[in-house]
Amino acid sequence: MLVSLFITCYNDTLFPETGRSVVRVLERLGHTVEFRPEQTCCGQMHWNTGYLQEAIPILRHFVEVYRDAETIVVPSSSCVSMMRDHYLKAAEMAQDASLRADVEALLPRIYEFTEFLVKKLGVEDVGAAFPHKVTLHTSCHSQRSLHLGDIPIRLLKQVRGLQLLKLESSQECCGFGGTFSIKNADVSSAMLADKVRCVLNTEAEVCTAVDNSCLMHLFGSLHRQRTFVRTAHIAEILASTAGERA
């Protein structure tokens, strides 16, 4: 299958290793990956901060880049939720019927990375090995918008050597929330402190998630507190094999 990778702006800029891992997993499963270099951003930061008019050209650009793509895979549930929950409304706001039609046609072809593996490909064992204690942070958009349920857990359970540790209060937000973490830095930090306490209680070596946005947030505090817990996007774990670590 030809898979178009939408890497997302912050993975592109800050977490290229996640993108490399997605490519490695998909190729290992026998698929062809393409990267459309014109891609930029899904528009979520602007939209969620209330810059609705400014978000429209950004998402219009996304739609133009991917209009003819067969299958689009995105290693971020947060960006996929932006598309599924808000693109139609944005098109309506722009009073642009052709944009609306394009969005309607495009949405069913967009998948979050783990959703793509399990729901579209029907694969749970991707041949990964990762001999570490891992805990999973269930990001808000993955559970409440995409309803991924136990999909990430099913994938992690098939990873050789991986010991999955349960995270207490895993339903509760880590406090990132995009610009919320800056506009309401104190509340965001208090939420983060609770989340980090739960992560440390698991005694995991690695905290993973399907979103690097939450992980960047968690990492910020884990590192500030000089703990030894690492953060890694789930793609990086799934890309690791007995011989190679992502």
Binding site: L14, P16, I182, L192, F219, G220, R224
Partner: peptide, 18 residues
């Protein structure tokens, strides 16, 4: 506001697109 309580990793040497 971010760095009150949180560190940030700098941009890596190479972006994904590069």
């Amino acid at each position: 506001g971010w760095t009150q309580t949180r560190d940030l990793r700098p941009l890596p040497e190479q972006s994904f697109r590069e």
